[in-house]
Design a protein around this nucleic acid. Sequence first.
DNA 1: ATATTATGATAGTATTACTATTATTTTTAT
DNA 2: ATAAAAATAATAGTAATACTATCATAATAT
Lengths: 228, 228
Amino acid sequence: MDQLLQSVTIRINEKIFIKDPESSDLGKRIIEESINMIGRMGFESFTFKKLGTQIGSNESSVYRYFENKHKLLLYLTSWYWGWLEYQLVFFTNNIADPKQKLEKAIRIVTKTTEEDSEFSHINEILLNKIVINEYSKSYLTKEVDTENKEGYFVIYKRLVNRMSSMIKEVNEAYEYPLSLASTVLEGSLHQHFLKDHFTSLTDCRENVDPTEYFTQLVFSALTSNIND
Amino acid sequence: MDQLLQSVTIRINEKIFIKDPESSDLGKRIIEESINMIGRMGFESFTFKKLGTQIGSNESSVYRYFENKHKLLLYLTSWYWGWLEYQLVFFTNNIADPKQKLEKAIRIVTKTTEEDSEFSHINEILLNKIVINEYSKSYLTKEVDTENKEGYFVIYKRLVNRMSSMIKEVNEAYEYPLSLASTVLEGSLHQHFLKDHFTSLTDCRENVDPTEYFTQLVFSALTSNIND
DNA sequence: ATATTATGATAGTATTACTATTATTTTTAT
DNA sequence: ATAAAAATAATAGTAATACTATCATAATAT
């Protein structure tokens, strides 16, 4: 990623925050440091009090940006999916062949984030780890339906839909484009997690990325003739 | 499921509990009522104090069975996976043809639990809902590696391995049997969740079970010639 | 120079997630 | 049948969490 990205901002649903963290220095420190802290200690041990101390500020000041840490997690993960969506669109835009396009798309959404684009104060490598470890917690709640209606998951949903469209462009007769798209996105996070913690449950490892597995899986499904 | 099951017990790692809940009436009420309560109010709102009140007992008594609610969740989910494993083995045991066997296996692990087997005080329908909504939380923690070493996830791991073996029996050249097995198990929970809360992200719905989707997906992957 | 807004400091509350102690009831062993 | 042991219940207490509320101070905008 390069210069271009420096002028791009990821637009997050305004209901997720009280005050836009991008609008001030303190806000940016909140985002920056919360990524470090959640990455280091995990979401459950992370608190606004600890964050306040860490950024040389105050618990009460953090509360002026986010209602609670759940909303902050929604903010961080939305940002991540927005960033991925941007890459997906940018790098597949010029590809005419649907197969090549889909292949590129799968590569983008399943790869390990290995470089920090430096286009913001956000550490994408760490954020990728956070998404792997914590994303499910943002929607596996009793409030999902309300929060979904409020539009807290729009970016992720848009991403799944973009993948689904690319799948359909390869084979419009395929019956499960949405399920396949959501399986690739969610499954990729899961395979990355297994690679790090349950090596006996995955074939992915150092140098065998989930990318290859999912690419083969998707193209098999789309070019299969088992239902003929 | 029938009579036979009444004599089967699912063996849970003894480190997960302090006192075996199967060993007393109070223990069984703890399990039974915790399933109702977690199902109703979600894992985060559930507390041992509320559980104590509900079963006409005491917070401190619950603590004599489980160290904390995380361990209780591990117990419940282990039980569920053990129960699924039992069905998997039981109903595939007599099938000689590897394809038919795998097909049956996929059906068992991806179907919606629709009947309470009555072979225990455990409500399997509700427990299935709990697994869909809460299972990820049991391993997406900072303590996974330690708890994995303690053997808290053995049953689940055994289940993935059984699925993986069945996959290999259909196509021993297939490169990702473990990833495919873990994708089916985890992905099935995810598709069920989407069906209930994010209908725009899945093709599964009333009468279109994840079963069909995953069956097609797995057999496409195994009979694919895209790498030839 | 003053009003406005942002931030910081402090205090307070209800709830959670426990631990510890003691009392009471139930079970079991003799 | 009785004593000892084990299980359960009741009560109290603690540190931490997840906030809310209030007031003071600093930065900025007009």
